[in-house]
Amino acid sequence: MLDRIKALGEGAINEIRASESRQDLEKLRVGLLGKKGELTEILKGLKELDGQMRKEVGREANLLKGKLTRIISQKAEELGQKEVGKSLGMDTGFDFSLPGTELPVGALSPITIVQREIEKIFTGMGFSIVDGPEVEDDFHNFEALNIPEHHPARDMQDTYWLENGQLLRTHTSPCQVRAMFKYGAPLKIIAPGRCFRNENVDASHENTFFQLEGMMIDKNISIANLIYVMKLLLSEVFKRAVKIRLRPGYFPFVEPGFELDLNCLICNGAGCSTCKRSGWIELLPCGMVHPNVLEYANIDPEVYTGFAFGLGLTRLAMMKYGIRDIRVLNSGDLRSLKQFATV
């Protein structure tokens, strides 16, 4: 019996050492140490032996069991390492340069992208965002902005009139009026939105475009403040220091009214085709809120002053992305618009 154990042991150890895979090794283990394994059978048969014999065979068999268990686990470890090593090899067919699974992303309108950026800048400076309707009435679009009926300034805005006497807003300025009525002073708001003017459409003119109106009213707001805030805004928008200049511009709802010119970012003022050789780009109309406009909204112009400005979002988006034809923006043409995949 002891010889049998010894032979079993030698044979088993050789086979274990020679095994080349974890499956082979497992087969061996089951054959030896499993429920019906050879060594297990021997151990099971111990109770049939007597005295001294049982003691000796028992000891040998248990020793062998310990030894085999140890060798198998060593071998298992060794084979495991070999397998990991093998999986790191070059012959697995792995090609890291194959493209990943495509997860397409939709595009946002360039207007949305620019609008959000400016909303972010202004909310960061404590401005609130307000909205207003696209179909407006005469009062909010003109009257309360110091443009009474038969005022020649109405010519500046080719208005779409509706059969019910209302109109498509020609600017986002009515949002100022609504905000002043709703919140009173002090006030810091911006109002981005779609505007309409009955113009002939060509590469640089649209009848439907986006503006962003801004307004700040408080005690002590001055022209110097207006210049400061505009400069800050434009530096943030263009992500660089900018040079600006103000010159007179006429808008009935501000006094004084300004046209703000931006030193051309392409040529730094030297003169190029973008700025029509002038070195300056006419960018945004602005001005000090006309005392009549404050009064209309029941804000005392002797106590409060303010400034307002209108930024052409469409124009800004075109500048930012070098869009030459304004018609692209309302075309719904995905060949153009798909390029503005979400950022």
Binding site: D131, L187, K188, I221, N225, R245, R247
Partner: peptide, 23 residues
Amino acid sequence: GYDNIEPETVDVILKPLDFNNVR
């Protein structure tokens, strides 16, 4: 001359308005 006016930062009272959840 507007160019002769130095820009100056604003000094105002803070008054939060409604947050625009719609936007």
